[in-house]
Nucleic acid binder design. Structure first.
Ligand SMILES: [Mn+2]
Ligand SMILES: [Mn+2]
Ligand SMILES: [Zn+2]
Ligand SMILES: [Zn+2]
Lengths: 143, 143
DNA sequence: CTTCGAATTAGAATAATTCCAATTATTGCT
DNA sequence: AGCAATAATTGGAATTATTCTAATTCGAAG
């Protein structure tokens, strides 16, 4: 488990050569460190341009490949808002997303103490939920 | 308000010439009636091919235009699952969506009696939610 | 009827993502 | 270390849902 202090996110070099059975190549470390570095839910393109700063030869296809690898190994979450480009989130704790309609900014939203969504849904008997996405949009405070 | 009995959905001809300030053209009535006819959450393409049966000259662009008009006037809901093509839902009551991973089928899921989502989210003070989408995926019962 | 804004249409354009085939890197042996 | 097998990366082409454009048609109002 990678530690996720708000202030010190790992540089690519600090990431181990394998996480959770996923081989951490140079590119995957770069992409992962970019996603870990800021909690602003970047798009694949954002990740691409940030990665290019340290690794000018990385390709967009590789960024997509790396993100897909990280997502499918559960190291990064993919976040969707309607038909917008996917965004990527390093916060693995149980949370959902709120998009400020004014700025487009996406904020993590946590569930209140001890709440389990399935408890509030009239799910068919014996349903097994493997994936859940909650996306909200609106205005914040006095904006 | 259009009545929505599970068994008798309106034919295009039965729809009024205007709903909720939206002029119901021949095409919009056709598209709306297709969405109302079945609760299977069709894609724009599904709606297009079903509409073509009764109206062979309708175009896909028009189907997109009509769906957009219906959605923005609140007569139809647009439903998204990850990066899949949007689907359209005639059920305006408060509900969310569950996709059976095995078949791809989408089911409406209602909230349990008196549940209000905002009640269990730690939303920033003064947040006004204008749009909310909850999408679940998984296996059903003994499949 | 005529007018005129709105809706429809076919087809082109867009844009996020995926695919492909070639190259390069890494791993696991001997 | 050398070598073969396997996996990852790359640039560019392809895909595909959706949007745009510009021309035509429709339809409500006068
Ligand atoms: Mn996901
Ligand atoms: Mn919506
Ligand atoms: Zn997040
Ligand atoms: Zn529905």
């Amino acid at each position: 488990m990678i530690s996720l202090d708000a202030d010190s996110s790992p540089t690519p070099e600090e990431l181990p050569p394998e996480i959770d059975g996923l081989r951490m190549t140079k590119q995957r470390r770069e992409v992962f460190s970019v996603v870990l570095a800021e909690r602003d839910h970047p798009t694949a393109n954002d990740v691409f341009s940030r990665s290019q700063k340290r690794m000018p030869t990385i390709s967009l296809a590789t960024v997509y490949n790396c993100l897909e690898a990280l997502v499918s190994h559960g190291l990064v979450r993919q976040v969707n808002f309607e038909r917008e480009p996917s965004r990527y989130c390093p916060n693995l704790s149980d949370h959902c997303h709120f998009q400020d309609e004014k700025t487009g900014t996406i904020h993590d939203v946590v569930f209140k103490e001890g709440v389990n969504l399935a408890d509030f849904l009239e799910l068919p008997q014996g349903t097994e939920v493997s994936h859940l996405e909650i996306s909200l949009k609106g205005r914040i405070g006095s904006n």
